[in-house]
Amino acid sequence: MNTEKRIKLESFALQVRERIVPLATEGGCFLGASLSAVDILTYLYNSFLKIDGEHLSDESRDYLFLSKGHDVPALYGVFVELGWLAPERLKNHLSVDDHIYWHPNRHIPGVEFHAGSLGQLPAVAIGVALEIRIRKGNNRVVCILGDGELNEGSCWEAFLVAHAKQLSNLIFVVDRNHFQANMATEELIPLEPLHDKCRAFGLHTYRINGHDFDQLDETFSQLESNQGPSIIICDTIRGKGLPSIEARADRWFCNFNSQEIGELMDELHQIKQADITSQTIVAR
């Protein structure tokens, strides 16, 4: 990837994070989980997925399913920066008068499917990939999973079926931020060696740094020749972009006061590190 393109993506990702942080107040959001996914979504929507913002329901479009639905602030941040979603609507976060809440839903243009129940969307993505095959289409289907989500047996069942059906247009992406709701994945339900597990299920498996646009680009660019489904395990950092909350078990769901949000915005812009004293509410 050339420098100019990379800088553009980095700048886009920063703007997405600027959209997300203010949502972590007055009810809060899954801040840590959202920030780990920002760079992946930024890359996919800017450089990989063929989706025409003017024609979001064009049947030849690529599909992105956010199975790890609680990181939807990252998706909305991307939609705002792409001009698909009016920025003012983010002010309606958790308002019953709009549809901007903790999980994605199809009331928001660009969202392909509602999510929230982990392990649900790999199967839906398979159905869409199968339908595209019936039509002999070229659309690609990307399904983003959390690493904690891989506790759900339905993910592995879907991997078996995706492989059995040799769905070459189907790409799973794991946001491997190394935490599930309340603790490190390896402390509760160890996933490693994850690469070996995915490969043993017959998936074309890659493991990269999910915050590195060059690695993302290099990997996604080589998927086209694959026969059968692929999975990209993206190592990421929970809370990426805010060192004061990064890689912490207790910074998944966050509900801060307005002063703390201000401090976090300063931290995001590398002005000074935030001093957060609020107890984090672990919502689950």
Binding site: L121, V124, I126, G127, S154, A158, V161
Partner: peptide, 20 residues
Amino acid sequence: TGITEQTMMGAAAGLALRGR
């Protein structure tokens, strides 16, 4: 889909999403 009632129902939703 094999002995996978969950995946079959989820995939059915995906097919329906595309108009089937």
